[in-house]
């Protein structure tokens, strides 16, 4: 099983959607990745949560009524009907999901055990994207020798970020949505 290709499938779909938006928005609105950091591959995250336990891909497509019911129970929008899921012989699950905030796009891996309890959460990749042109010359000047429209990779250029606390509310919402997804859909599988 090639986990990496599964994951990049999510990213490609996301980028394609963003690309379509770009065409409609025209030149005034140019989304760009401000920074991104990769932490773990899906495989590494699964091993951190579940150790060497064997998992097999178990993709699930949610029906419309299921999506509606999960949304009602978790009070969280269900964006994707396809669940990128892996299952062990002991009914443990490992789910790959994407959390979409106003500016942040976070890939997460979540382990849920046979009783529906969250065993672990790992952030695989964190990206922040902004759709404005940087107007302020002083802030621009801090990017000396660097075009602010270029894609920045955190590991090389932007590290040790401080600022007032970022909320993890969107991740909490996603975990809530996934535990309800387990309860309503994955439990009997």
């Amino acid at each position: 099983m090639n986990y990496k290709s599964e994951n990049s499938g999510i990213n490609r779909r996301f980028l394609l959607r963003g690309g379509a938006g770009l065409l409609f928005a025209g030149l005034l609105f140019r989304p760009k990745v401000v920074w991104a950091k990769e932490y773990l591959t899906p495989d590494q995250a699964r091993k951190l949560i579940w150790g060497d336990k064997a998992f097999a891909a178990h993709p699930v497509t949610l029906t419309k009524p299921q999506m509606k019911s999960i949304k009602k129970a978790s009070k969280t929008r269900v964006r994707n009907k396809k669940l990128n899921a892996f299952k062990s012989a002991e009914n443990d699950w490992f789910l790959l999901d994407q959390v979409v905030g106003k500016h942040e796009f976070i890939d997460i891996g979540v382990g849920i055990d046979g009783l529906g309890k969250v065993k672990g959460i790992e952030i695989l990749e964190y990206r922040e994207t902004y759709g404005y042109e940087i107007a302020n010359p002083k802030w621009r000047a801090q990017f000396t020798g660097r075009d602010s429209s270029e894609h920045l990779k955190l590991d090389k250029q932007v590290k040790n970020i401080s600022g007032a606390t970022l909320s993890c509310r969107h991740i909490t919402d996603a975990i809530n949505r996934l535990t309800h997804t387990w309860d309503q859909v994955l439990k009997p599988l």
Binding site: Y39, I121, I123, C168
Partner: peptide, 8 residues
């Protein structure tokens, strides 16, 4: 590693 804890 990065985990959602402490509200962040």
């Amino acid at each position: 590693r990065n985990q959602p804890l402490l509200g962040t």
